[in-house]
Design a protein around this nucleic acid. Structure first.
Lengths: 175, 175
DNA sequence: TTTTACCTGTGACCCATATCACATTTTTCA
DNA sequence: TGAAAAATGTGATATGGGTCACAGGTAAAA
């Protein structure tokens, strides 16, 4: 990517800073942007009717995240994006996302790669939900993302894995 | 899309026909192609150590499917793609996939859309595995894909939903 | 530094779903 | 068309993981 391409691309972006606990996207509110994490960490969550929170993903440095369904369908969020740490993001609006793809085919290629690997990762997660026990899923997670387990609480991990914090706590007796 | 674009694109594709029960991709064998379903139906499955089959997706007409992880990483399949009906597919090799994207930016755009919607669908499925009961998942499925439930057996649906066929059978007493 | 909120572990008990076993019906294809 | 294979329903029983409850620990914020 050349200097001039980089400068062009930079004009599409806006930087914003959030505090731990802040919502970047909130359930019920229209989603106009997708966000790139420069520094910090967020979680993409769904709060169900019973008040339970489910974690769809953790977004760390260099990840793009938003409520993609709402972003692409131009609707209200059904999920929220909440900061687990003070976080700096770069914002890209829906319009600019498409303008950028049209203007710079390298960016379209880049987003294709992102979408593909996102799809792959989700598929692997579905597989582990279908085929693995709670224990296997937990050990696979700490094996594949050791840094994650150092940055988030056990309760958060439990919610990501789809189990109760009590059950997670019982999985590593003496481990 | 113009006539000449269409003709160019067509040169990248090869048609193949398979019988019900045939494997299009087989666990352990290198994956060189992605497949577009012209007619028929396939399932993407993972067979675990205990011999249990898990269904990752059903590929019906107009869907692209393969073991994407193996396809993109240029490795052996960890999943299989098996025909549920006699099926006609169009094959696109890894090389041609990239050549085509580079040659025809509309195709790259098209694949970006596919990957994005694939990612969205997977995310919704993860959410339903995390947040919904077996019953809710089953009723959501027949609501969202009524045609699917008419083409595949209950055991296959159970496997897709991540539950035993016995449990599925007990979910619709009087329904 | 103190207060307050959040996080973690653990026991007791419960329930949704799995497993096993068997009978019956439906579909496939030779 | 007839035999073999696959799909389905249903009872009995087992179990992984959830829920509730409480206590002690750790971190954040005023």
């Amino acid at each position: 990517m050349t200097e001039s391409e980089f400068e062009l691309i930079a004009t599409y972006f806006t930087e914003r800073k959030f505090k731990r606990g802040d919502y970047v996207v909130r359930q019920g509110i229209k989603v106009d942007h997708t966000f790139f994490v420069v520094e910090g960490m967020m979680k993409l969550i769904f709060d169900d009717e019973s008040g339970k929170e489910h974690i769809l993903s953790f977004a760390m440095e260099n990840w793009w995240e938003t409520d993609y369904l709402a972003f692409h369908k131009r609707t209200q969020a059904t999920m929220s994006l909440k900061c687990l740490e003070d976080t700096t993001v770069i914002c890209l609006s829906f319009e600019d996302y498409h303008n950028l793809c049209a203007a710079v085919s390298k960016m379209e290629h880049f987003f294709l790669n992102k979408a593909t690997s996102g799809h792959l990762a989700s598929q692997q997660r579905i597989l582990s939900l279908l085929a693995s026990t709670a224990q296997e899923r937990y050990f696979k997670l700490i094996h594949n993302y050791p840094s994650l387990t150092k940055r988030v609480s056990k309760s958060q991990l439990a919610s990501y894995l789809g189990l109760s914090r009590e059950t997670l706590s019982r999985l590593y007796k003496g481990k």
